[in-house]
Amino acid sequence: MRLLSISAGKVAPLFGNHHPDYKSVASAIRKKVVSDPVNLVPVEITMLGIKGDEQADLSVHGGIEKAIYVYPAEHYTFWNELLTRETKRPVCLEYGAIGENFTIEGLLESEVFVGDRLQIGTLEFAVVKLREPCFKFNAAVGYKGASKAMLQSGYSGWYLRVIKTGVLTAGAEITLIPGARETSIAQQNLRLLNNRNQKDMWE
């Protein structure tokens, strides 16, 4: 298990026609890689996440309980194939394109439980909950069905709380420290999917 890249972003206007109430909305979902195996840049991690990273709406992203958004690199093939098919143009997303801060390999939603801890390098994090996608994700990838596809696939990623701060560099090994293991991220995703289906809450 390994940290492939670290990404951060600034709040900026996000344009798209993927929500009836918004033509443009502020968002920092467009993350850019700041450390990867080619450019091993040390990145400072605080209790609020990556230093310099921003969030437009702290009610749904960021803060102490959602300081870091993690996404498995294994899912990128799914998104590239889906978006290429649906948008009728070749798509090859770069890491950070899902809005994640940490792109990792070797650990999936079915293997991660709320309350587990991840030791990455010398830093430590606690698994908090899954990422709930919204219309901003649709706009960011240019496909109005992206949020629904994320939940239906189970490829949601998850949020971390920072337990031990410090400096991280891409390429760091990840160690999973199991918690109570009562609810996995995959189980959370299934519950949210069922709830949205029952209430017809798709945006």
Rank of each mutant, 00 (worst) to 15 (best):
Q119C: 07
P90W: 03
Q187W: 02
S59V: 04
H19C: 04
L107F: 11
P178R: 13
I45H: 07
L160V: 06
A73F: 05
Q198G: 14
R85M: 07
V127S: 06
E81M: 11
E203K: 07
L3I: 11
F125C: 11
A140N: 15
S24T: 14
L193Q: 04
R161S: 15
D116L: 08
K129F: 00
A26M: 12
E86M: 13
S5T: 15
Y76E: 03
S27A: 10
P20N: 09
P72T: 03
G99P: 05
K10C: 08
R131L: 00
K31P: 03
K199A: 13
L48H: 05
S7Q: 14
T165Y: 02
T175Q: 13
G63R: 01
G63F: 01
N138F: 14
L107G: 06
D57P: 01
T87M: 09
G62V: 04
Q188M: 15
P13L: 07
G171F: 10
E109K: 05
D36H: 08
V112H: 13
V60R: 06
P133E: 04
V70S: 09
K199C: 08
T165Q: 13
R2G: 02
E105Y: 08
E124V: 12
L176Y: 08
R181F: 13
T77N: 04
H18N: 14
P133M: 08
H18L: 12
A172V: 02
A28V: 05
M150F: 05
T183A: 00
V112Y: 13
T84D: 03
F102Y: 12
P178I: 15
V128K: 12
Y143C: 11
F102L: 06
A180C: 08
